[in-house]
């Protein structure tokens, strides 16, 4: 395997250092305690520090002799639309109700695919919303109102 400078390695290591560091800083706000009675901050401090050190090692290795991985293309449209779809569901399911929230989430997700035809989008949205309503609300008796209070009826 060929080894040289690797950007994905540096990126991954950077994320680890960042998250590990954030947890270390966060833990310092809690009581650390003694080994006999460890406080709530001790364990996250320890693991956070380990993560940050590992992340640093990955960064260094990535700069000197990293794994050669091609990062590949990023489907930005799909990333944005699917993230929005999931967030929307969490945000609106209580207010809008099960049916509208499911429909919007499915619509946004379906649009994430490249080369989608409008007719397919409509068909998938209606079909999946109906299927989800039948399975979860009718079949499994999930207690979410079909239409929510935001709609005014």
């Amino acid at each position: 395997m060929e080894r040289r400078r690797s950007l994905p390695d540096v990126l991954a290591g950077g994320i680890f250092v960042l998250i590990g560091g954030a947890f270390v800083v966060g833990s310092l706000g809690h009581r650390l305690g003694t080994p006999l009675r460890m406080g709530p901050g001790a364990f996250p401090l320890l693991v956070g520090a380990i993560l940050a050190v590992l992340g640093l090692a990955i960064v260094v290795k990535g700069l000197v002799a990293g794994e050669v991985i091609s990062f590949g293309p990023v489907p930005w449209r799909a990333v944005v639309l699917i993230t929005l779809a999931v967030l929307f569901f969490g945000f609106a399911v209580r207010g809008l109700g099960f049916v509208p929230a499911s429909a919007v989430t499915t619509l946004l997700t379906t649009l994430a695919g490249s080369r989608v035809r409008p007719l397919t989008v409509v068909a998938v949205t209606i079909g999946l919303t109906a299927a989800a309503t039948l399975i979860f609300v009718v079949g499994l008796q999930l207690r979410i109102p079909l239409w929510g209070p935001w709609l005014g009826f």
């Binding site: 999931v86 569901f89 499915t106 989608v116």
Partner: peptide, 16 residues
């Protein structure tokens, strides 16, 4: 194109 919207929708409902 049918499969991945289904996974996302069912995952959101199930998790909620």
């Amino acid at each position: 194109q049918v499969l991945f919207p289904m996974i996302i929708l069912f995952a959101s409902i199930g998790t909620y």
